[in-house]
Design a binder for these strands. Sequence first.
DNA 1: TATTACATGTCGACC
DNA 2: GGTCGACGTGTAATA
Lengths: 221, 221
Amino acid sequence: MIARCEVDYAGRLTAHLGMATRLLMVKADGCVAVHADGGAYKPLNWMVAPNVLREEVVDGRLARWVVTSPKGETLTIAIEEVLSDTAHELGVDPGLVKDGVEAHLQELLAADPARIEAGMILVRREHPTDIGPVDLLCRDGGGGAVAIEIKRRGDIDGVEQLARYLERLVRDPHLRDVRGVLVAQRVKPQARVLAEARGIAWLEVDYDELRGLASADLRLF
Amino acid sequence: MIARCEVDYAGRLTAHLGMATRLLMVKADGCVAVHADGGAYKPLNWMVAPNVLREEVVDGRLARWVVTSPKGETLTIAIEEVLSDTAHELGVDPGLVKDGVEAHLQELLAADPARIEAGMILVRREHPTDIGPVDLLCRDGGGGAVAIEIKRRGDIDGVEQLARYLERLVRDPHLRDVRGVLVAQRVKPQARVLAEARGIAWLEVDYDELRGLASADLRLF
DNA sequence: TATTACATGTCGACC
DNA sequence: GGTCGACGTGTAATA
């Protein structure tokens, strides 16, 4: 529906939209989105499913939508004028098939840990700890254990995550001297500072280059 | 536009959507979104502005949209059948007014730090450290330094963030005895446990009450 | 432009 | 229900 409307949201915060022409989208699951003619895919206001949409009609004309969620949020859309109103059954969507990057990065590095550091050998992928699995557990040239966390973007969170794993791993007598390496396509400055403060190494890798090497390897054999 | 289509994205990852009926939205700024009839406000696929949309017509019928971004991403929409196609000028939106975000919480608490603890006085907002700014730096009734991290939701991350800041701040001779307080509208149980383990205090505040007090103050003067 | 932190983040997986 | 981790995160502000 295209309509001139005014919108108010009250819930986790309060928000107000002045009167203007906007696109109102209601999906089959009941979720509502208010879009302006710009600003990427995020709507100005929305309400996720499940919710209850109440339509208020005044003098035979649609005047207001009041959408309430079980969590106590309300989205109120005061409608001044409806410029267009269409409805379509879309049916069930076959769904999205993704081929992600982090998983692929991990595969490539697991296949050739020497890319991280010369002499590095893979011990185990997704090595479990009691707070979650470490991406890669390796041994370096000198036989020392190395825990590796792989991210597309190396952020401060990734450093903390790896630090938490290391804290657990050192309790294992076989891994007493384990050290950590954060590997990412890009390691942010703040993450570098924190990693160094925590005694964690970091490394930037080029995804295309890794993939190139991998396919070159494939061509060799 | 409502159309039966098949979608492929290649860029930061690759993704494929099988043939189905979907809603295609093109905004004035050129951004494109492919929506299914469910799944909240997030589109299945999209392309942000700026981009170039090329329309391919075969036998006088729309056959394909190819959207390319300057960053080398492409979104390809193969269109089998157009069920509906409408266009509207929405004009400029007056914009969204929000209230209740972290910035407001920080403003209110900065204006009256005694709400956190009796006798508390503000020293500085956004006090910088080399890993980021502390929301509020205060002095308590006894003259001791207090670093305050403000969050809408007090999560484990917030505790660690504050702990990192404290780690840095204690190096400053003026702040040797600095302590930390995590202030949030709601502090999660795990965050409470971790905060206490780290010697960090936590406090839940009510936004409406804070705002109420603030406006009461305004009325007084 | 790059860096940072916030977001009504959303979303899935797992417990 | 809560927590955790990933996201094509997006987005705005700031340096």
